[in-house]
Design a protein around this nucleic acid. Structure first.
Ligand SMILES: [Mn+2]
Ligand SMILES: [Mn+2]
Ligand SMILES: [Zn+2]
Ligand SMILES: [Zn+2]
Lengths: 138, 138
DNA sequence: TTCTTTGTTTAGACATAGTCTAAGCTAGGA
DNA sequence: TCCTAGCTTAGACTATGTCTAAACAAAGAA
């Protein structure tokens, strides 16, 4: 696995200073940031960075297939740079905490042909929900 | 399986005319409506019905556990009255068409204990993505 | 180098989805 | 009947994200 900027460059995609800061902010942490969280953190390094550029850049990285867009809770979308590592997500219904998890089988294999409605099915993602250790007492 | 209004009444939840129209609109079709789509259709039967009541009522039905809220695409949430029938969803990445599917195993069993991060995991839903018959040519 | 072309960034207007508020309404109990 | 608690309403408000038009920047041509 190579870093996100390297992967992005392979698409002949211009790595401007703004795009580099956004990519590095996204990849630097292992949580799943919203666009606003990325804007806030990236602005610490590049204060004049605009909101529109953050949204545009994230959408382009998703379109290039190098970042995953997660819309799991009906609030802000979250962005996941770990597109190369097959994984799913576990979400706390109390506090919203999100963890990566690695399931043991490929869910695509568990969908019978007669349940596919003629679709060409390409991806399957599993969302596990429950309560994190901190939220189990409350 | 009983109808949604019957299930709702069991929670000692007052079935007002507005709530009945919303529940019947939601259950009447087998698609997954957004709140705005329910408002539009319910208003054909009760023109003075307000947007706030539709949103309030849907949120209450979700809180009672009788309706499922689906946030799958980062746009409007969709509401699924088929909470009693265990199923998952297949989405067309071209046109957004959503189909119910029934997988053959329980995904909860796919998640090893050492991947649970101490969570009490209660639910797992699988989202399959691909292209529907109409969108495969384009 | 300078010019031209093309793509990028910006601020702010705009759009959409959903929540909140305050007032009025309704139904059931005293 | 009146009272009270809960329900409904219109519209203001908030949050998230997109669009527009102008300024800016970089690469290639001359
Ligand atoms: Mn992830
Ligand atoms: Mn469904
Ligand atoms: Zn939690
Ligand atoms: Zn389609």
């Amino acid at each position: 696995m190579s870093d996100l900027v390297t992967r992005l460059r392979r698409h002949n995609w211009r790595i401007t200073p703004q795009r580099r800061v956004i990519a590095e902010t996204l990849e630097g942490s292992h949580v799943h940031f919203t666009a606003e969280e990325i804007l806030e953190r990236a602005c610490e390094r590049m204060p004049e960075l605009s909101r529109a550029t953050v949204y545009n850049t994230l959408n382009e990285m998703v379109a290039l297939g190098e970042v995953l867009e997660l819309a799991l809770d009906g609030r802000s979308k979250r962005y996941d740079p770990g597109v190369d590592e097959e994984h799913h997500h576990l979400i706390c219904e109390g506090c919203g905490l999100m963890k990566d998890v690695h399931a043991v089988t490929d869910p695509l294999g568990w969908l019978p042909a007669d349940e596919r409605h003629g679709f060409a099915v390409t991806r399957a993602s599993v969302t596990y929900r429950g309560r994190c250790p901190d939220c189990q007492d409350a």
